[in-house]
Design a protein around this nucleic acid. Structure first.
Length: 743
DNA sequence: CCTGACCGGATTTTT
DNA sequence: TCCGGTCAGG
């Protein structure tokens, strides 16, 4: 009976994916094919059929938010009598934290179950400290580059030892920093994001009894977004499924967009090789989008060579044509988008609100500002996802750093963060002494501080300040036992003088930061109500993701395309479709990266249910300088018969007037071109300056680089953009360039 | 030790 | 443009 309800409304493929429960199963799920639904129903089915008890199922999702939603939906599917026990639905990282909080001390050494989690920020601080200690020049080897290289190496299973010996200086710098970084992490009893996965894998490998217990327990394992798993995640899955082999992975190779995070698309492409008994089911029926949108998506993704062909089909309506908007400037683009959005929502105001939700999707977070401003100008309420989420704000991280230090005084990242915040007279010189001592004796900052204090070698002023800080932390530590979290957080922000500091600033911004801290106290109160410990509170804060604070009923959502993965909206704007921005300039000369970028575009398109807008700004400020843009190559990959352009198409030069085409009122830039109505194609924009006869927008020919376009004229210098080769700067008077006829 | 002025370099995406 | 780092002066 219950089973019928569970399988009702599923198509044959989906049904098979739900009920094929013996052995490995690969579900290739196209965009909008009801993937989440399949996972939810599969879990409910396993429980309902008595194939597993709740604690025997592990489901892994990409975000905490997805996990929560999935859990809720499973319970909704089940009759009340079946709703027992705890279903484990988690992200890889939160699952690993669970395991490590139980077993990490098995390793012995400095690692204990009380470890601290270092986020990207903490990691960056530590890398910088290491560079300094090693006297490696930050200019020559940017900390971010080193950080990225180390993370990459770790995810590929490398250690400083396997990487040595180094041949070139860069690699040498990386390896040296890597080695010191790992030492310092261990000394601080800290784990970075990568460690969470790596150490869990190592733990299961090293201690068969632990592995045994988990392998035995998880009879059924489900992994969502499997195309985005990286090597440690793959290894973890392998380890966990050794016994029962009831692994179900769901994903879409065409939506693999996390290569930079070491995700390996081969994990899904070669699943059948990794699990020879595997069955494969393809969900190619799309329930989300109109035929037009799907046609665009199929056409775009077919340009990728490295893929397994899969055509999505839908029985949905043909739908409205895709709309293309070309705006003269990025500001105008934002205005046009918001205008179009309002008009669309107005036309559908008779529909339920859920049917009028819209998303503005961009490639980079930096683009969000323009759209926020445009929304504010029109009084449109919006929700911004990502960028600076609550737990990333400086004041929140400061408060959390205090809390971290209470639990683990050897947490160097936290120590450094707050030792002089608010300012308490502990300056660079004092800090240097502590740092030097810590480095010399391999101590944590905290222990080094205690030693330095005990020796009485500091000048009196510094000593007093330092002792005051140490006293403050010990005082707060004394309140740890038994006190509610909310009271503890309050004590931290009060006793540390943090609130007073904000009060004295008296600015609007300080006031908003004070309110954020108040909100943190509220969050702590809620954690108290859940019965959470400080440890759990901090873990959760470290592992929240951008999309976790997503608001489901927001009528307008702004976010990066990466954040939009797994979501859908009736109306979607994909903005900034310009060469160098999307696809991003950093990828255009790497074929594989470019294909990933195209998959990103594919993800963006397939978020749309009813209406899709693709937009471009003809000019955009980059580093505070106006640049002329080329339309994204991806735009040309969308079949032109299904796109309706408003405004001028650069390639055709034609002008289609419509209610949405822009007029002189939009973003007229300052300077000579200001008065000119901007309805002309980019190629004939008036120049904003001249040098040796070249004008902004001119097409030119260079002997080695080929054809290019003038994107900047200033100081007697010319910037020329060469497609695929980047922007080169020339001295205008001596530039070996010939002008090409205008198109 | 702290503040403010100045300069130079940077923007990809995130658990 | 904006942010972070450096340096001089209080």
């Amino acid at each position: 009976m219950a089973m019928n309800a569970l399988l009702d409304g599923l198509n044959p493929e989906q049904r098979a994916a739900v009920t094929t429960t013996d052995g490995p199963l690969l579900v290739i799920a196209g965009a909008g094919s009801g993937k989440t639904r399949v996972i939810v129903h599969r879990m409910a089915y396993l429980l309902d059929q008595g194939l597993a008890r709740p604690e025997q199922i592990l489901a892994v999702t990409f975000t905490n938010k997805a996990a929560l939603e999935m859990k809720t939906r499973v319970h909704q599917l089940l009759p009340p009598s079946r709703r027992y026990g705890e279903l484990l639905v988690a992200t890889f990282h939160s699952f690993c934290v669970r395991v490590l909080r139980r077993h990490l001390d098995r390793f012995g050494g400095s690692y204990t179950r009380d470890f601290t989690i270092y986020d990207t920020d903490d990691q960056g601080r530590l890398i910088k400290a290491c560079l300094k200690e090693l006297q490696i020049d930050e200019k020559q080897f940017p900390p971010r580059m080193i950080q990225y290289a180390i993370s990459r190496a770790k995810n590929q299973g490398e250690t400083p030892e396997t990487m040595a010996p180094a041949s070139d200086p860069k690699r040498d710098a990386i390896i040296k920093t890597f080695r010191l970084y790992e030492t310092r992490l261990a000394a601080a009893n800290a784990l970075d994001f990568d460690d969470l996965l790596l150490l869990t894998v190592r733990l299961l490998r090293r201690f068969p009894d632990v592995a045994d217990a988990y392998q035995d327990r998880f009879r059924y394992i489900l992994i969502d977004e499997y195309q985005d798993t990286n090597p440690p995640q793959f290894n973890l899955v392998r380890l966990l499924t050794q016994r029962h082999q009831n692994l179900c992975v769901v994903g879409d190779p065409d939506q693999s967009i996390y290569r930079f995070r070491a995700a390996d698309i081969r994990n899904i492409l070669e699943f059948e090789r990794h699990y020879p008994r595997a069955k494969t089911i393809v969900l190619a029926q799309n329930y989300r989008s109109t035929k037009v949108i799907l046609q665009a998506a199929n056409a775009v993704i077919r340009h990728n060579r490295a893929r397994r062909e899969k055509q999505l089909t839908t029985q949905n309506a043909i739908g409205e044509p895709i709309r293309g908007l070309i705006a003269p400037t990025a500001e105008a683009e934002a205005d046009l988008v918001v205008e179009a959005l309002l008009q669309w929502q107005r036309q559908r105001s008779h529909l339920p609100e859920a049917e009028t939700r819209a998303a503005i999707l961009y490639r980079t977070n930096a683009q969000s500002r323009l759209f926020e401003e445009a929304c504010r100008r029109r009084g449109v309420p919006y929700v911004l996802v990502g960028g600076f989420s609550f737990y990333q704000r400086a004041e929140i991280k400061d408060a959390l750093a205090y809390l971290r230090l209470l639990l683990n005084p050897h947490d160097d990242a936290a120590f450094e963060r707050i030792i002089n915040v608010p300012a308490r007279g502990i300056g660079k010189a004092t800090l240097e002494i502590i740092t030097a001592r810590a480095a010399r004796d391999g101590l944590s900052r905290w222990t080094a501080m205690e030693q330095v204090l005990a020796e009485g070698a500091l000048n009196p002023r510094a000593a007093t300040a330092l002792a005051g800080f140490a006293g403050l932390i010990r005082d707060l530590q004394a309140r740890l036992e038994g006190a509610p979290l909310a009271a503890l957080v309050s004590a931290v922000v009060n006793r540390s003088g943090y609130l007073e500091m904000l009060a004295q600033e008296g600015t609007l911004e300080a006031e908003s930061r004070r309110q954020n801290l108040e909100e943190l106290v509220t969050a702590a109160t809620e954690a108290d109500e859940r019965g959470a410990s400080l440890r759990e509170f901090l873990d959760q804060a470290a592992l929240v993701s951008d999309t976790d604070d997503l608001v489901d009923n927001a009528r307008v959502t702004l976010m990066t395309i990466h954040s939009a993965k797994g979501l859908e909206f009736p109306l979607v704007f994909v903005v900034g479709l310009e060469e160098g921005l999307f696809p991003h300039a950093r990828v255009v000369d790497d074929a594989e990266e470019l294909e990933e970028e195209r998959r990103l575009f594919y993800v963006a398109i397939t978020r749309a249910r009813h209406q899709l807008y693709l937009t471009q700004a003809q000019r955009r400020r980059v580093y505070g300088e106006e640049r002329i843009t080329d339309p994204s190559r991806f735009l040309e990959e969308v079949p032109e018969q299904i796109v309706q352009f408003d405004g001028a198409l650069p390639s055709s030069g034609g002008i289609t007037r419509s209610p949405l085409s822009y007029g002189a009122s939009y973003g007229a830039p300052a300077g000579p071109s200001a008065a000119k109505p901007s309805v002309e194609p980019a190629r004939s924009q008036p120049a904003t300056g001249t040098a040796e006869g070249f004008r902004l927008g001119d097409r030119v020919e260079h002997a080695t680089y080929g054809a290019g376009q003038v994107v900047r004229v200033a100081d007697g210098k010319l910037d020329i953009a060469f497609p695929g080769k980047g922007i080169k700067r020339f001295v205008a008077a001596a530039a070996p360039l010939t002008r090409l006829p205008r198109r």
